[in-house]
Amino acid sequence: MQKEHYILLVEKFLSNEISQEELSELNSLLESDEELKADFEEQKKIKEVLNKMELRNPSQEVWDSYWLNVYNRIERGVAWILISVASIILLSYAAIDAIDELLADTQTPAVIKYSIFALILGGVILFVSLIREKLFVRKKDKYKEIQR
């Protein structure tokens, strides 16, 4: 007897989807094998236990406010994106302006000017490196659907 076929018959029995023919087949299997009979009784008992229980349903207020919560979170997400983009643009503009002024100023020591240049170069290299890595991982990673 194939175990898979026995499981199919048990599942059909437990979900009341078993035909008369299949029921006779299951009964004859159980009659001929004590171990299977004990296993079948165990499955029935567990099903009975589970049938007596249900999941706790949260109060109606929870459901009433569910969509509003989702909507508010979407809206706030959009707001945060706009704030972030605007902040990056404004801060970048201010930084470029400040650097421009420092570089144009003849009083600024050369070491500061070189440091600013090194900082910008370092930032660009880091940015390019991160982008390249991201693109590489996206292309090759077969687990990309799983969040890290």
Binding site: I7, L8, V10, E11, E42, Q43, K45, I46
Partner: peptide
């Protein structure tokens, strides 16, 4: 569907 049935059966066994 066959795998669903089999996984349910073994999950019930573990629960038992």
């Amino acid at each position: 569907e066959g795998t669903v049935m089999s996984r349910l059966y073994y999950a019930r066994k573990k629960l038992a």
